[in-house]
Write a protein that binds this DNA or RNA. Sequence first.
DNA 1: TTGTAGGCGTTATCAC
DNA 2: GTGATAACGCCTACAA
Lengths: 335, 335
Amino acid sequence: MKTTIKDIAKLAGVSKASVSRVLNGSKPVSDDIKQRVLKVIEETGYKPSSIARSLVSKKTNLIGLLIPDISNPFYSELVKGMVEVANKHDYNILLLNSFHDPNKEIEFLEILKDKQVDGLIFMTDNFTKEHINFFKDYDKPTVTVNRKLKEYDFPNVDIDNFKAGFDATKYLIELGHKRIAIIRAPLSDETAGVKRFEGYKKALEKYNIPFDENLVKEGDFKAKSGFISTEEFLKLDNPPTAIFTVNDEMACGVIKRVIKGKLKVPEDISVIGFDDIPIANNFIPSITTIKQPISEMGKKATKILYNMIKGENIVNKDFLLPHKLVIRESTSKKD
Amino acid sequence: MKTTIKDIAKLAGVSKASVSRVLNGSKPVSDDIKQRVLKVIEETGYKPSSIARSLVSKKTNLIGLLIPDISNPFYSELVKGMVEVANKHDYNILLLNSFHDPNKEIEFLEILKDKQVDGLIFMTDNFTKEHINFFKDYDKPTVTVNRKLKEYDFPNVDIDNFKAGFDATKYLIELGHKRIAIIRAPLSDETAGVKRFEGYKKALEKYNIPFDENLVKEGDFKAKSGFISTEEFLKLDNPPTAIFTVNDEMACGVIKRVIKGKLKVPEDISVIGFDDIPIANNFIPSITTIKQPISEMGKKATKILYNMIKGENIVNKDFLLPHKLVIRESTSKKD
DNA sequence: TTGTAGGCGTTATCAC
DNA sequence: GTGATAACGCCTACAA
């Protein structure tokens, strides 16, 4: 049978209250008692029950983490940063994977609420009324990553996606490219579907390059969709000389298709990705990309959440971390 | 204030016990009471506290998951399979990431114990006496993946690594290769350091190809170590015509270095990887590899754990799932 | 079938 | 300083 605080009290010849006090230092205890209690604890290897504690303290030391797909390198890197910070502060991560299913997201939010996590980090593809509704009566600290929920003022960790899209496009323009294609995310994706796309358009506009609807495709973040979109681009009378994809995996697919067409990257077509996941550097050619500080974003989000749990009042809710253009082999001057 | 069972009882005009009964169906309840209680629950949106429940039931519906590195594609894919099965059975995943640090592993095992998870899935690079010691007085259901702990009889989900190493090597031999190098894991790694390596040696032996110590390097699963090892191989008077790496990421590094040396894959050097993570298929050239059913392994492990939690007695403790040679572009006949 | 009472392992509020 | 004792929210004998 597991030893409880009661056993310790009995063995040390003191009251439960005293044991609790030496355990938590909540009130002064005489040295005599302290030593006796400590000794018994040592001998028995007693550990207080975190569950019983939670019941009275209303704290679980759990952080709920809801993400769309843990097997996606972007998310797994993010999670890595999160668990590191969480564990450092003695918090643990309850991981829920929604598989991009909005219904599951709601269901899992309910579970997280049921488990009484002390805080919540939440990522979704797009917000629905059900999400909005859930948060109506959820009062635990919550932070989002990569998605700003307009209806609530949750702190959000992100990069400046508009500027990032602008920078990527501008770089291609400066290399001399004029026919620049983009494979963006669906427009329901505020970040990779809208903002980066707007940055792209803004750059074209600024440098007086006409926007061409034929040079825009929608992808699903998988390599295959980059491959397929590129196939379409190559059929054009006036195909692009550069392609910008809103994540690195699609860039892989793009390159694969370009090479299959007996063309070369970057000589014939330059390719620029987004995120800078490990494959971007390992690919052949290595991929020029917009680096997101993924792990840092995970850490930052967790740090903020931790501070909120500790009662800190977050004033500025938008945390924009710096992105960076990482130049590698997949881009070159247009001659 | 949160509504409790007491509130429900009062509102429905019955005892807490009755409410509990309709909640759990633990004992028959009259239709009248049942309806009244259900109605109040509906109106209030009452949800029983899982913490209070855990305190009395000694069950948390939590599965502890301890892995070395969530950002490694192999583990993240594994975890994906695990969360899927866990959630299906109404269990949640408490995720601990050890960052390959044995001390953290022990520390986290203690945390998992403290959190009173109902079961444990556990992966480590290698077992130490501290691990052995921890499990001495840990009695919750436990399963391992990819690592057999000899001292305890935990169910283990794995592939036949000896046979897999043999198959990979045999395939290269059948293609006509005689100078076959291997980049294995450290020998402390029973799976990728020892067994696959033994399979490699066995294949050489069977086909009367002399074993050459110069064709063996030790890697750390990262692309870079594949790159560096290959550099060494290329310096040999009699360099290999084929290289077998015990994971796919190292294979990427190998290919990168081969190409940098103005040689071609597979024309000059064939490369075969291991695992079949997504990059293996997306790489250029796509990588021939030994496919592990990663997601399946995660599902299987979780399923077994679930059955154990439910009281099932597992007799056969070794669960070997089938691996498969996936032939792609990185290997070809030696002429 | 139903309700009362006690207990799960802590912490917190009192008196002393 | 210290020790009863009452919560925390739920389940489960035990009686009725």
